[in-house]
Write a protein that binds this DNA or RNA. Structure first.
Length: 580
DNA sequence: TCAAATACGTA
DNA sequence: CGTACGTATTTGAG
């Protein structure tokens, strides 16, 4: 293998105020471009062979907003998250980790309070830091004790020299990260490439937003929350309107605070229904006992839309261009799935007809089928389980081997991956252990590590810690055991969920690249589902490209073709439209 | 005023 | 005693 050959890396740092870009060449020389055309020429001239190193994709935001393509990047932050787990990946932390410095004594970021004045000059660095970069390496951002200056980040850069030194430091970290990732496993560097691209995609997703059909969305909101309130009085009146349907189901009840679970429980007791809690699944079991219960469940549904996805949400997150925007991150702090704000990942299906292509456009909707068991087959190397993935419906061959119904096989496989032990799953699990011992061993091993508070790794090499937040000292024996079990289930699931996230992102960023020529954009990533917005003439071609991208990226990711991934791909006007 | 607990939407 | 996240609300501590 020749993976150790030096990558063609160029560091990139932006001067926020000057509107310029500093580029550090592979030999350390720094050049600079200012103005859009000059910057674009500088970036695109080198694009085909260059991987652009930055501390984070967020630093590239101005270039991304200017729609520069940036196809090959190395995000120091994403590499750090892969190597060390968790979410925190500011430059100072990444630098210290790459240098092997103690993270416990990481200089704290500057405070804006009065105490900051008292502490000035006590950072272990020079009191009058030289803001000059030396040719041999970054002097200015680095303190005498080896840490990066806590008060420096990309928004504070003011000169070409500073930007150059900032980029040089990023490239130095990237080289160390690459070495570490090479040790981590055969897929880790490729994973870092796609995670870095996913971080750029995350900025693009926020830039482009999700196209919505405003009249339809407004109608759907009106149906649940009531007409748009103008005054605060209106708002209270709408709220009372929603409450009324529940309250009138129990005559003479008077005023009840439906938002207070204790009051609701009392309300139900008055109606002659005694429930241990007012949780939805509990209420559903008593739905036929009194008409107030269905009314309450419907109230909850409407109230969710009114409060979380109502008029305020629409005004806050949907722009005048009818795009729904929220911030995205390329990975969460646990197994590494993408996250999104503004409710983009939990939009009720009821509102999805309101997500629609802009005029003259269509949406290519694609979702991976049965992705987690297919990922299990890939990461475990269980050849029998891999054989099942060749089927369009993986659960059919599994059921056949288990000698059970498809439904039993499905429950068993999902239970195996989620660590469920209760109910009918227990029996069927034994069948899985008999027929697919290799896959089951991998899950059990991860679970045992989690129970012991030890980390696990995704197939792409991401470290997933299992001992993070809870203070395990001073726990009773029962608490300790339930904590260990929770960690075990988490670890068992994390190797699958996290590896699936890596495959998904590899697919998503391949789609991102390959639809660029069609002038199409990925506008939503939802764990196993992609929406691509495209002009209608190109929609069919785009759907084909999405399929091809899955074939290519999954083949690369798995490393062979004995595990198959499948996607449902359809061309629709609205997100809600049925798959074909 | 802030954090935890509760609840629930999505995968 | 299935996992994850984001959002809103209530509650209780400071």
């Amino acid at each position: 293998m020749t993976t150790s050959s030096a990558p063609r890396w160029r560091g990139l740092a932006l001067l926020p105020d000057a509107g310029g870009v500093a580029v550090v060449e592979t030999d350390g020389a720094t050049s600079m471009a200012t103005g859009r055309s000059e910057v674009e020429a500088l970036i695109t001239r080198l694009t085909p062979t260059t991987r652009w190193v930055t501390w984070s994709a967020d630093e590239l935001r101005p270039l991304i907003l200017a729609r520069l393509p940036l196809p090959r990047t190395w995000s120091v932050a994403e590499a750090h998250r892969l190597l060390h787990g968790g979410l925190r990946a500011d430059p100072h932390r990444c630098w210290a980790a790459a240098r092997g410095l103690d993270l416990g004594t990481l200089p704290s970021p500057p405070r804006t309070d009065l105490f900051a004045l008292l502490d000035e000059g006590e950072d272990g660095g020079e009191t009058e830091p030289s803001r000059t970069a030396s040719p041999g390496g970054p002097v200015w951002p680095v303190r005498r004790d080896g840490y990066l200056r806590a008060e420096v980040d990309h928004s504070t850069l003011t000169t070409l020299e500073e930007a150059g030194a900032w980029a040089v430091a990023a490239v130095q970290v990237a080289h160390a990260q690459r070495e570490a990732l090479q040790q981590r496993g055969p897929r880790a560097i490729a994973t870092c490439h796609s995670e870095s691209a996913a971080a750029v995609l995350a900025v693009e997703l926020e830039r482009d937003g999700l196209p919505i059909d405003r009249p339809v969305l407004e109608e759907l909101i009106t149906r649940s929350a009531g007409a748009r309130p103008i005054t605060e009085r209106d708002e209270l009146a709408r709220r009372a309107d929603r409450d009324r349907s529940v309250l009138e189901a129990v005559p003479g009840i008077g005023r009840v605070d439906l938002r207070n679970p204790a009051s609701v429980r009392q309300l139900l007791a008055t109606a002659g229904v005694d429930v241990p809690s007012t949780r939805k699944w509990v209420l559903e079991q008593h739905a036929d006992r009194h008409r107030v219960i269905p009314a309450l469940l419907d109230w909850r549904r409407r109230e969710r839309i009114a409060t979380t996805y109502g008029w305020r949400w629409l005004d806050a997150h949907v722009g005048p261009d009818d795009r729904l925007r929220g911030a995205w991150s390329a990975c969460d702090g646990a197994a590494g799935r993408m996250t999104a704000q503004a409710g983009l990942h939990s939009l009720p299906s009821e509102l999805r007809p309101g997500v629609a292509a802009a005029p003259g456009h269509l949406i290519v909707r694609a979702d991976l089928g049965q992705v987690e068991p297919r990922v299990l087959a890939a990461v475990s190397g269980d050849e029998a389980f891999a054989a099942a993935t060749l089927a369009e419906d993986l659960y059919l061959p599994v059921a056949q081997r288990l000698g059970s119904d498809r439904s039993v096989a499905k429950v068993a496989v999902l239970a195996a991956m989620y660590g469920q032990r209760s109910g009918a799953a227990g029996e069927a699990l034994r069948g899985l252990e008999r027929e697919y011992p290799v896959a089951m061993r991998l899950l059990d091993h991860a679970q045992r590590r989690g129970e012991g508070g030890m980390p696990v790794w995704t197939v792409g090499g991401r470290l997933v810690r299992t001992n993070l937040p809870e203070q395990s000292e001073r726990l009773g024996a029962d608490q300790r055991q339930s904590l260990a079990r929770a960690r075990g289930r988490f670890a068992r699931n994390a190797v699958i969920q996290g590896s699936a996230a890596e495959l998904f992102k590899a697919w998503a960023v391949t789609v991102r690249e390959s639809v660029r020529d069609l002038d199409a954009q990925v506008v939503l990533c939802l764990h196993d589902e992609l929406l691509v917005h495209v002009r209608q003439e190109q929609a069919q071609r785009c759907a084909d490209v999405v399929h091809e991208a899955l074939a290519a990226s999954s083949r690369r990711w798995v490393g062979h073709d004995r595990v198959r991934f499948v996607a449902d791909v359809s061309v629709v006007r609205r997100w809600s439209e049925a798959k074909d």
